[in-house]
Amino acid sequence: MLSKVFATIAVAITGSILLYGVSDFPAFGDPHSPANAGVPGSESVSLYFIEESYKDTKVPNIVTSVLADYRGYDTMFETVVIFAAGMAIFAILRVVGNKEETAAKAAEEDSFTNGDHNRIIVGTTVRIVVPVIQLFALYVVAHGHHSPGGGFQGGVILGASFIIIALAENLNAALRRLSELNYVRLAAIGIFIYAAFGIMAQVLGSNFLDYGALQPIFMTDGPEMARSHSMLGVEIGVAFTVTAIMFAIYANLASRGQLVKGL
């Protein structure tokens, strides 16, 4: 009881100090605040991105151009982090062996073979909705450098479309569409696509992930459009990895690493 009183007092004091600090903040969206414009002597890079990123890359969505081009190295290893998270899930949860027995049991309990009519409405709805979700996910990936979206969001939506199949029918139905071997391959291919853009730029005599050097490959007028096309390419790579790992994490969590039946 006493510790609760002390904790409440500590929280109240910390909260009031934080609120007092907030009153000194610059106004919301102030372009001349230190975070946006920097201080005299060390100007911030945000103004450069706002003014020059469209001229540099011909990509209207500044967020995507910063994420996939100016900070492409950072994003590449973010994708590697997601891949590593998926591998950690495999290492912790995946159970190998004893599979024939559990698979036979799962086939016995398959809702569509033994006529579980409660799932007909859900199953039919999902069958109608899933193509729309997947089409939207592909649009989010393909249009990510012109509107909000990109590889991470599109990949998560695409992965969610497989999860929704697993939720509505069972895990085996989703694994028939994206098997374990295929999603591990997909996750690795995604990172390879991203790294390939970097290495191609190196081969053509520029820095790693300097997309402007890819102009001869894309046969564009200037390096700007090459950067725009390369951003789409690396977003596709990110989407591959994220799709595969999102579904892999769900499949391993829901089936306790057995990859049969699921929830």
């Binding site: 989010v140 909000p148 979206g149 991470f152 969001q153 969610a160 769900y250």
Partner: peptide, 14 residues
């Protein structure tokens, strides 16, 4: 909007 999109798909969805 980009952050909101990510939050809707990752935070609220998956």
């Amino acid at each position: 909007v980009d952050v909101a999109f990510t939050e809707a798909s990752v935070g609220a969805g998956v």
